[in-house]
């Protein structure tokens, strides 16, 4: 599995932007805000949040509208909207590339792209210095249909390599997307396909491990060799890199 890759502020004009690749999808996000809100969308004591998801080809369909709704609800709980009353926070997510298996997956499925969208949205908000209550990390989990025991869940499957595998799971097993906040609590769980409650629980735990890492993972702990970085840890390093880049001028003084 190629590790998710994120860049902050690739664009010049928006207040914040980010590109992120995960599960074979590459997405660019841009945020503008807080800006003036239209009268009809104005909320007296908090910010209105607008999410636009734009597919790589074609114009938006009901599928994108649904994803937008899921994202708006999720982000409303992450953004400190009460700090920006009567304004608009406008987020645009443009899908730049999709894995070649994208078209062979069941067309109604919006799950494979969802983790990449969520993580792009979060990185974009960070880059745009929008006040947030916590961190956010999302991951895709595929649970193959168990004919016998011993088949493991696949966390963050790579559609390019295990394309047919993911496809098979999408048809026969269950696909799940989980998102966790900074305290390791699930803030989003979307599932589809054929699965039981044990499958779901196992998938959730596996996802939590990837997103948040071990419970006592503190920023000061040295990286254990061989151990995978949690996504929150990755985010921290990303911000650190950005801070160093911004503070280059200090180097000489």
């Amino acid at each position: 599995m190629p590790a998710p890759k994120t860049t902050l502020n690739p664009l010049r004009r928006p207040d914040g932007s980010a590109t992120h690749s995960q599960n074979g999808y590459t997405i660019i996000g841009a945020v503008n805000g807080p800006i003036e809100v239209q009268r009809r969308d104005e909320i007296p004591d908090e910010a209105a949040i607008e999410v636009n998801v734009r597919p790589a080809t074609g114009v938006g369909s009901p599928k994108e509208r649904r994803i937008e709704q899921v994202l708006t609800t999720l982000l409303r709980n992450i953004i400190l909207t009460h700090d920006y009353p009567r304004t608009l926070i406008q987020l645009t997510l443009q899908i730049l590339s999709t894995p070649s298996t994208h078209s062979t997956l069941p067309s109604a499925s919006s799950l494979p792209v969802l983790p990449a969208l969520i993580n792009t949205a979060y990185a974009t908000l960070l880059a745009g210095s929008i006040r947030l209550s916590t961190t956010l990390a999302a991951v895709l989990v595929a649970v193959p249909k168990r004919f016998g025991k011993g088949e493991a869940v696949i966390v963050d499957p790579d559609p390019e390599e295990g394309g047919s595998e993911l496809e098979a799971v999408a048809r026969k097993g269950g696909l799940h997307v989980f998102a966790f906040d900074g305290r390791g609590e699930a803030v989003l769980a979307e599932s589809e396909g054929d699965f039981g409650i044990e499958d779901w629980e196992e998938a959730c735990e596996a996802a939590r491990g990837v997103c948040c890492g071990l419970q006592d993972e503190s920023p000061d702990v040295m990286e254990v060799e061989g151990a995978k970085r949690s996504m929150v840890r990755g985010l921290r390093e990303l911000v650190k890199g950005e801070v160093e880049k911004e503070g280059r001028w200090r180097g000489e003084g």
């Binding site: 928006p14 841009a30 636009n52 734009r54 114009v59 406008q90 645009t92 443009q94």
Partner: peptide
């Protein structure tokens, strides 16, 4: 050529 708010609000 559909513009999105990405280029300008």
């Amino acid at each position: 050529t559909e513009f999105s708010p990405m280029a300008s609000p």
